[in-house]
Write a protein that binds this DNA or RNA. Structure first.
Length: 552
RNA sequence: GGCCCGGUGGUGAAAUGGUUAACACACUGCCCUCUCAAGGCAGCAUUCACGGGUUCAAGUCCCGUCCGGGUCACCA
């Protein structure tokens, strides 16, 4: 058969040849050891943390080798596509701050980066394959395929379009012409030369050496609607975009033999593959499964936006999932950038990690504790402008004051670690704003030692806003005995029956009066920041509250 | 079912044939402390899925078994 004739018959519109595209998308001029990686999602809905894990892995490997990371949208299946799918992917990636070098919105010399805009390229490459006798049109109906499958299942044979089941493999040119004339829909299939009894070897960057039987299935390359299937598009695109490392989910492992054959047929060099295990999730009942957007709210990207977990934190978490040695390194080098760490595929776990929210929050609170107050303020302002207008306006109105509040026990060697997300800030400092201190004592449990007398004494005889912390606390200790409190906890523990409480209980009265909470940051700092007027007000209000509740 | 991948504490995991199986998160206790958050110290917990074999020596190498997962589309 004259394959050139067949190729022109099937693709009469193809005028260019593959060397045109090879010249157009030249080998990238990068330094030795630079990786070219990509993230190639389909616009079928929001991303989840597992997708992000793959995307981040690709990005960080490129970044840490001074390579290129690009985004390619795989939208060749219109049936599954959703509205705004591309935008959602872009938003999700932006929310964890991945730096995309090339993509639909970033430009680049290897585009288009959306597969539906590359159809002419695919047709040219399909034409090439047909002209080499490596692909052929298949007019088999869905009914035939279904029937073939059930026969194979019944006979316990391997399933697939191969060998004697590949009816269209050896169609005569006249038959093909006849079918085309009748406008019969057809797919383009690979004419496989593989031998199932021979091996093909994958040297995977993560999994190591894996042997498979060779592919001998005449897989569909181009659908009857003329759009390519993943396998075909992957080979063409990753070659033309000069990808050096294909990072993808391990579920692709089993289609490696097909991909290997396609690369071979085209005569293209193969990229290095890194098949990574998907992120899993443990259910309440102990079952482990792949993390899911629907079932696991914390797997959705919006969860982190809503919680106010910084993108850096997510990156640090993903990095430690990728390579647990990173964790130790980062602990010792908290000021370095993530990409300064030398990541390696071979350090990646071969098995699926379990998603661990506790660990993420732990990383988050450490992260927050290292920030400067003004940085926390800026980001908190930004966060609340989206999610909490009331708090946003307060932060904005009392800028310097708010920064001081956020600076309590911060920017010191062992800073507080109570903030774990931007959304948690409000509940930690809300009492510092009169506007949010409304009916504060409603839920206070009045303890036996609560009394307004120490407050009264404190404000009249002790309080001096200019005291240092040490002087202040010594004064507090001194006044303990006047009201039956032990001046230190040891004293109280030794003979608790002699006292109504200890100095910590005395402080608790002040703390509750000022903040309506029993647990807050440093009391001294709070007193200072609230200022004389408000301390007076709050003490008086608390006194009123105590009196009212005593009589009832 | 065929093919492929995986299996070290509750979790992430280190270990490259060589002490008592690191470290981090979580949990528990103690210390420190005006409460909390921290910080310090200690503890809990892995018969390295199971069974054989090789070796002076096995989590590590070999064989078998079991369990979990993936894949076998005109989805990606």
């Amino acid at each position: 058969m004259d394959y050139n004739y067949l190729a022109d018959l099937l693709y009469p519109d193809v005028k260019k040849d593959i060397s045109y595209y090879e010249g157009l998308y030249k080998k990238r001029d990068l330094s030795d050891g630079a990786f070219v990686t990509r993230f190639a999602p389909s616009p079928t809905g929001k991303l989840h943390i597992g997708n992000l894990y793959a995307a981040f892995t690709s990005e960080i490997m490129a970044k840490s080798t001074n390579g290129v990371f690009y985004l390619r949208i795989e939208d060749t299946d219109q049936k599954r596509e959703i509205e705004n799918g591309v935008q959602e992917i872009l938003d999700d990636l932006a929310s964890i701050n991945l730096s995309i070098d090339e993509g639909p919105n970033n430009g680049g010399n290897y585009g288009p980066y959306i597969q539906s805009e590359r159809l002419e390229i695919y047709r040219t490459f399909a034409h090439y394959l047909v002209s080499k006798g490596k692909a052929y049109p298949c007019f088999c109906s869905q009914e035939y395929i279904d029937q073939m499958r059930s026969t194979q299942e019944k006979n316990k044979e391997r399933i697939g379009y191969y060998g004697k089941y590949a009816k269209c493999r050896d169609l005569k040119i006249d038959e093909i012409k006849e079918n085309l004339k009748l406008n019969k829909p057809y797919t383009l299939r690979l004419r496989s030369n593989g031998d199932y009894n021979k091996k093909v070897i994958l040297k995977d960057a993560v999994k190591g050496k894996i042997e498979f039987p060779q592919n001998d299935v005449d897989s569909v390359l181009i659908k009857s609607d003329q759009t390519p299937l993943y396998h075909f598009a992957h080979v063409v695109d990753d070659y033309l975009m000069r990808t050096t490392h294909v990072v993808r989910d391990e579920s692709w492992l089993s289609s490696y033999p097909l991909h290997a054959e396609l690369f071979y047929d085209f005569g293209f060099p193969m990229p290095i593959y890194a098949h990574i295990a998907p992120v899993n999730k443990k259910e309440e009942n102990g079952n482990v499964r792949k993390i899911s957007k629907r079932k696991d709210p914390e797997s959705r990207i919006e969860y982190y936006a809503l919680e106010g977990i910084p993108s850096e934190v997510i990156q640090i978490y993903l990095a430690s999932l990728m390579d647990s040695s990173f964790e130790l390194w980062y602990l010792n080098n908290p000021d370095k950038r993530i990409d300064e760490y030398k990541f390696s595929f071979s350090n990646m776990s071969k098995s699926s990690p379990l998603f661990d929210l506790d660990k993420l929050y732990n990383i988050s609170s450490s992260y927050f504790s290292r920030l400067k107050a003004s940085d926390v303020y800026d980001k908190a302002l930004e966060f609340n402008s989206k999610y909490d207008n009331e708090f946003y306006l307060l932060l904005k109105k009392y800028k310097d004051y708010s920064i001081s509040v956020l600076n309590i026990e911060r920017e010191i060697p062992r800073p507080r670690k109570d903030i774990k997300s931007y959304s948690s800030i409000k509940s930690i400092i809300d009492y510092m704003y009169d506007e949010l201190f409304i009916n504060p004592y409603d839920n206070i449990e009045i303890k036996s030692y609560y009394s307004d007398l120490p407050l009264e004494y404190y404000i009249n005889n002790v309080y001096d806003i200019n005291d240092t912390k040490e002087v202040w606390f010594n004064k507090i200790k001194d006044m303990c005995h006047l009201f039956g409190f032990a001046s230190n906890t040891k004293e109280y523990k030794d003979s608790s029956s002699d006292y109504v409480g200890s100095v910590s209980d005395l402080c608790e009265i002040m703390r509750v009066a000022l903040t309506a909470k029993t647990m807050t940051p440093d009391l001294y700092e709070i007193l200072k920041l609230l200022g004389t007027k408000r301390v007076n007000e709050r003490f008086n209000n608390f006194k009123e509250f105590l009196n009212k509740n005593k009589t009832v």
